[in-house]
Simulated assay, not measured.
Amino acid sequence: MNPNRLEPIEAAKQFISIYFPYCQGAILAGSVVRGKATETSDLDIVVFSEDTHSSYRESLIFSGWPIEVFVHNLVSYKDYFESDRKRARPSLPRMIAEGVSLKNEGILEAIQEEAKQILATGPELWSVETIKIKRYFITDALDDFIGSNNRAEELFIANILAELTCEFILRTNRRWIGASKWIVRSLKEYDEAFTDQFVEAFDLYYKTGQKSEVIEIVDKALYPYGGRLFEGFSLGK
Rank of each mutant, 00 (worst) to 15 (best):
I118P: 06
Y19G: 00
P66L: 14
E167I: 01
W65P: 03
Y136Q: 01
R185G: 10
N150D: 07
Y136A: 00
A26Q: 00
E163K: 03
V75S: 12
G236T: 02
E39V: 02
R87P: 01
L229K: 09
E192I: 10
E82Q: 14
A158M: 03
L28C: 12
T139F: 03
Y22K: 14
M95V: 10
S212Q: 12
A26S: 07
A88V: 06
Q24D: 05
D51W: 07
A158C: 02
F233D: 00
V71F: 13
S59G: 13
P66A: 12
S55H: 11
N104Q: 07
S180K: 14
E7G: 12
V46N: 05
E114T: 04
L43V: 02
F156G: 03
E231D: 12
S54C: 14
S55N: 12
I133P: 01
T38Y: 10
S83D: 11
Q197C: 07
R94T: 15
A110K: 15
E163Y: 04
I138Y: 04
Y136S: 00
L204W: 06
G64K: 05
R174S: 04
L142F: 07
C166H: 04
W126C: 09
W65M: 01
P90S: 08
A12H: 11
N73I: 04
T165Q: 00
K207C: 02
G35C: 14
E82V: 12
K13Y: 01
A115F: 12
E192G: 09
M1C: 08
I96Y: 14
I9S: 07
L187W: 02
L43F: 08
G227E: 02
N149D: 09
A12Y: 05
S49K: 06
I27Q: 03
A158R: 04
K181P: 05
R85M: 10
L164N: 01
V214W: 03
F194M: 13
Y205A: 01
I67T: 08
F168V: 00
E192H: 10
F156W: 13
P3A: 07
K134P: 01
L108E: 06
A179F: 10
A26P: 00
V128D: 14
K211D: 02
W182H: 13
A179S: 09
R34M: 13
D51H: 15
H53E: 09
E200K: 15
K188S: 06
K132Y: 11
A162N: 02
I160K: 11
I183K: 04
I157R: 04
L222V: 02
D51T: 09
I9G: 04
L142K: 06
I177W: 01
T195I: 05
T172R: 08
T52C: 13
A11G: 06
Y205E: 01
N104F: 10
I16S: 03
S41F: 12
Q112I: 08
E213K: 15
I169N: 00
K13N: 05
F62M: 04
A29Y: 06
L92T: 11
C166L: 06
P224I: 12
